[in-house]
Amino acid sequence: MTSLNDEFVIEASGIHKSFGELQILKGISLQVRRGEVVVLIGASGSGKTTFIRCINLLEDIQAGRIRVNGQAMGYRERPDGSLVRDTERNIARQRRDIGMVFQRFNLFPHMTALENIIEAPIQVLGVSRAAALEDARRLLGRVGLTDKADHYPAQLSGGQQQRVAIARALAMKPQAMLFDEPTSALDPETVGEVLQVMKELAEEGMTMVVVTHEMGFAREVADRVVVLDQGELIEQGPPEQIFSQPQHPRTRAFLSRVL
């Protein structure tokens, strides 16, 4: 692995994605440096959620390349340069490096908060139960839910569930975290607690790609804001620039609607 590859945790280039006739992504490229927080914004239907789902292969792509830590995701290159879809086992292994937090939390309802967190480390990484439990308790403390360890998801508020989901993703010790509208399904009063956890995570140097409608969060936490519109990346830059001097007319139109 060269140092150049090392610099970027996520490299996506020329991602094309369509559902039947409908083109969702029209060749999006994005590189994310280690420790960088990238926030994707854009109108609904602009493809931002689809894009981050493509990064960890929850969606198939029609064209383009994705590399995580310099390693190709989802396909192997033949010696002649052509691509073949990788085996399920290899794709599963590649996904370990990327944590994902969903809009609807997707906690396992038949497991307690603690069991949710230790499940993948034990089953996927082969960590011992004792070590996984210790780590899970530490992570629960980090998201401020030490006292909820033995609660089932249905007994937790939306904000608490989302914080458990973040802890569950962190338990895999990922290289990067993807957040797919993590606060969109929350009650307004619990949005803050989730954003606070994400902010702390960013300050600790986690590489993050966040899809959100929380412009305040984007402005405060993002290193770079990326604007998508109709499946295209139309503008990117530091938050000050995007929010105060947007260049692209469609960025201006979008921001005037949401701010």
Binding site: N56, M100, F102, N106, E119
Partner: peptide, 19 residues
């Protein structure tokens, strides 16, 4: 969403089915 969460945690089909 349960499949997606399991897959994103690196589970293979067999594991996500069983667990």
């Amino acid at each position: 969403g349960q499949y997606e969460a399991s897959r994103s945690l690196g589970m293979t089909f067999g594991k996500l089915m069983r667990r």
